[in-house]
Lab assay of single mutants.
Amino acid sequence: TTIEWNGTKITVDNPQKAKELAKKIAKKLGLTVKVHGNTITIE
């Protein structure tokens, strides 16, 4: 699972952990999480 935001890509083996990490990042930055299959985008 890949997390993408602002040109940065982070690959996380565990999809559940990836989703939790994305939510934490999005919350800190005041952004939203969008899931597209194996890609999680923070916008």
Results as ranks from 00 to 15, higher is better:
T32W: 03
G30N: 07
A22M: 02
E43T: 14
K23R: 11
V35S: 04
L21C: 08
K24F: 13
I40R: 00
V35C: 07
K23V: 12
I3A: 06
I25W: 06
G37C: 06
P15H: 14
K27W: 06
K34F: 08
T39S: 09
T1N: 07
V35M: 09
K9T: 12
T1Q: 05
K23E: 15
I10W: 12
T11Q: 10
T2N: 08
L29N: 06
N38W: 04
K9E: 05
K23Q: 13
A18F: 04
T8A: 08
H36K: 10
I3T: 06
K24H: 12
G7F: 09
K28I: 10
I3D: 05
T8W: 15
T8R: 14
K19W: 15
A22E: 00
W5H: 05
T39D: 03
T41P: 00
E43Q: 13
G7E: 07
I25E: 00
T32K: 12
N14D: 14
T41K: 10
L31R: 03
K27V: 08
E4T: 08
Q16H: 12
K28G: 04
I10G: 01
N6F: 14
A18G: 03
W5F: 13
W5V: 09
K9C: 14
T32N: 09
K24E: 11
T11W: 15
N14I: 05
I42M: 07
E4F: 12
N14E: 04
T32D: 05
K34N: 08
L21Q: 02
N14R: 03
W5Q: 03
T41E: 05
N6W: 14
A22N: 00
N14L: 04
I40T: 01
E20G: 05
G7T: 09
K17H: 09
L21R: 02
D13H: 13
N14T: 12
A22F: 03
I40E: 00
T2E: 08
A26E: 04
K17E: 09
W5G: 04
T39Q: 08
N38Y: 03
K34V: 11
L29Q: 05
V12A: 04
N6P: 10
A18S: 02
K24W: 15
K23H: 14
L31T: 04
N6Y: 12
N38D: 08
G37I: 03
D13Y: 12
L29Y: 15
I42T: 01
L31E: 01
A26F: 05
K28L: 13
N6Q: 10
I25Y: 02
T32I: 13
I40H: 01
A26M: 06
T41Q: 07
T1D: 05
K34H: 13
T1R: 01
I40G: 01
G37W: 03
T11F: 15
K34W: 06
N14C: 08
H36L: 10
V33W: 06
A18R: 02
D13S: 15
K9W: 09
G30R: 03
V33A: 05
G30H: 06
K9R: 12
V35A: 05
G30C: 06
I10Q: 01
V35R: 04
V35W: 08
K28A: 10
K27F: 07
G37L: 06
N14A: 03
K24G: 04
T41S: 09
G37E: 06
E20V: 11
I40D: 00
G7C: 06
K19P: 01
I25D: 00
T8F: 15
I3K: 05
K23G: 07
P15G: 05
N38R: 03
K17D: 08
A18W: 05
K24Q: 10
G37K: 05
N14M: 04
I42Q: 00
Q16K: 15
L21G: 00
T2K: 06
W5E: 03
I10M: 06
K19V: 15
V12I: 13
T8V: 14
A26K: 07
A26T: 04
N6T: 08
T32E: 07
N6K: 09
T8P: 02
I25P: 00
G7Y: 10
D13M: 15
T41M: 11
T39R: 11
A18H: 01
V33L: 10
T1F: 13
V35D: 03
A22Q: 01
I25C: 05
W5P: 03
V33T: 04
W5T: 04
K28H: 11
L31M: 14
D13A: 15
A22R: 01
K17T: 09
T32L: 09
G7N: 08
K27G: 08
K27Y: 07
E43R: 09
V35T: 06
T1S: 08
T2W: 09
E43V: 15
E43A: 12
